[in-house]
Write a protein that binds this DNA or RNA. Structure first.
Lengths: 109, 109
DNA sequence: TCCCATAGTTCGGGATTTCGGAACTATGGA
DNA sequence: TCCATAGTTCCGAAATCCCGAACTATGGGA
């Protein structure tokens, strides 16, 4: 099993962030992680809204978020803890994440 | 030839905007249109950076931008004029477009 | 130590999307 | 009417996405 990929913040690309968050399920997962500070992956997020997501799909969603630089995943025993990197990303691209998350929130209303 | 699709501003979805701008070429095209106020499509944008884009691909990039609600295209004689809808989008999703365009600009530096 | 349960990752292949050349359509001018 | 220019549509190849099944990793028990 290859090690998890976490890009250095200076290697994080806007296109990867936009792509990652252009999927409403990934955006919802990211919002949950950011709000909670830390979410136990996959098992804790087995569904988004009323939509059940197979665990292989979930795993790849986490991978996309991770490789875009939006989250950091570390194994703690048998489970994974995912932390939002939103402070780092905010420093690199000011206003980006909050504008995106606000846009989704505005749409929901 | 079907008529061009321009969503009403209240039907514009964040995911479509993020997806449209997650392609650096589309983001560059959008930046150019927004900066210029109006660009004659396709023929005027035959390349992005040093990369030549075939006109069928260019046509579909414009379609993605149009259907995401980012631009408005109108035919003027034989050519098309594309206008940025950034003021409308800004009103609906405050800060979103400027944060995205700033992120791309920051990356370029 | 061995076996099991839990949590995620990887694999494989079918479905969907994207890319781009060729053909087609629309418009204006000669 | 014919031609040139500007874009769109079509369609097959390539790339990507999706998700079930198989696999890997870790932490308990017994």
């Amino acid at each position: 099993m290859r090690p998890l990929v976490h890009p250095a913040i200076e290697d994080v690309q806007p296109e990867a962030i936009l792509y990652a968050l252009s999927d409403p399920r990934r955006a919802a997962i990211f919002a949950r992680i950011t709000k909670a500070g830390c979410v136990e992956a996959c098992s804790a997020v087995s569904a988004v809204g009323d939509q059940v997501i197979p665990k292989s799909s979930l795993s790849s969603h986490f991978k996309v978020l991770r490789e875009a630089g939006l989250i950091r995943s570390e194994r703690h025993g048998v489970e994974m803890r995912n932390h939002s990197r939103c402070a780092e990303v905010e420093a690199r691209f000011p206003g980006l994440l909050s504008a995106i998350m606000n846009a989704y929130a505005a749409q929901a209303r």
